[in-house]
Design a protein around this nucleic acid. Sequence first.
DNA 1: AATTGTATAATTGTTGACAATCTTACAATA
DNA 2: TATTGTAAGATTGTCAACAATTATACAATT
Lengths: 227, 227
Amino acid sequence: MNEAAPAGTQVVAPLKRETFSDRIAADLRRAIISGEIEAGDQLREIELAARFGVSRGPLREALGLLASEGLVVSVPYTGTRVLKLTAKDVREIYTMRTCLESLAFKEIWNSRSEAFATELEARHKKLLGTQQLSDHVASSEAEVSLHSLVYEFCGHTLLHESWLRIAGRLQFYLAVHQRAHGRTAPIDDAHERYVQLALGDSLDRMLDEIEAHMQRGIVQMEDYLDG
Amino acid sequence: MNEAAPAGTQVVAPLKRETFSDRIAADLRRAIISGEIEAGDQLREIELAARFGVSRGPLREALGLLASEGLVVSVPYTGTRVLKLTAKDVREIYTMRTCLESLAFKEIWNSRSEAFATELEARHKKLLGTQQLSDHVASSEAEVSLHSLVYEFCGHTLLHESWLRIAGRLQFYLAVHQRAHGRTAPIDDAHERYVQLALGDSLDRMLDEIEAHMQRGIVQMEDYLDG
DNA sequence: AATTGTATAATTGTTGACAATCTTACAATA
DNA sequence: TATTGTAAGATTGTCAACAATTATACAATT
């Protein structure tokens, strides 16, 4: 092999040109989260290619992206289906979140900016708005967006990337769960407390809140499965 | 309230048929980690397709897999190049490892099996062997394999998956680093201590060791960059 | 009725050709 | 000299047809 790039030149913000597969992956993601395509459904390549007006090549690439996010699972020569979440899956999502989000707050704690605070409150307000409108999809998106903030600001690229890889599954679960419940109203003031502590002055209390927040999420899921 | 065996058809070990892209991805991974393809090199699809005797379709899929592992980075219409690790990248890998491996040990601690202990010592012995042979590739693989064990045994699928997604980058770094150093001999008895504590009876001491282990890794990397 | 074998259909895996985009070299211009 | 425009080449993106594999229906057999 040959030819590395010149040592000095640093690639900055490649300004990625959008390719078909990106748009298709986004559309499919939306369709899955909104419930238009249900959990367990098979995603047929020919059918979807026709629907999006492309050939199977780019479509396969889009499915590959979704598979890397865990939203679909594909078996060679058999097909790819929309993820069917189990209770174990959800528990794992929450324990992972505890771990990742704690690290994110540790990383950002001593350099929380004004912009961070502003944006955090903006996203919180947006979440409250969607909850009042009973818009399940927008609500799940807003909740994920609220929690995404710390990953976006903490400056830890790998951590942010790891978060993005499970954020889709979380949003999928939240949307499904809320649809099943038939409500989007918050069960308590958890997010108020979350925002307040995130802007407060005790990292330890924030970390405790994260753990408690996730634990409540697990309990809520298990209650739902029992009821 | 736990555990599986739900009604309905359960997917049992799909026995994945191997497809071209899997084998190609594995071969490319090996070539990248061994240094046959150097960091920063461009991976040309036509050239690689010819080398592996396939068309560009499966090859592109293989590149997609490597991209999802972070071993290569691709820009639309421009190409995909082998990852060039920065000091920041390496620091992030180690802080992520601290976070993930701690969770893994918390999960497994009270259910460590006899098989776990046996396999841990087996992999440790294998690591020592490769280090004496000064085989950089095998040594980096053995070291990653040693640390992989806890993820394989802890029963946390999502955690394991997250680990696999950074394990390739870690092995890549270890191999590059060891080649640059020209040695594979351990700098201290870190792995002895790691194994001993992993089989010991204090989770807290194990967690401390993980943190220290990763911190040493970062320091070692920074020393190398300065020297 | 349950099981097994076989032909058929449906679906994914793979290929080679063509289109779109980027990179490079180089001449024209100020 | 430095800059800009342009054309050629190289590389990736996309497509439509073909091959390999799996799933289904159904008859034959026990």
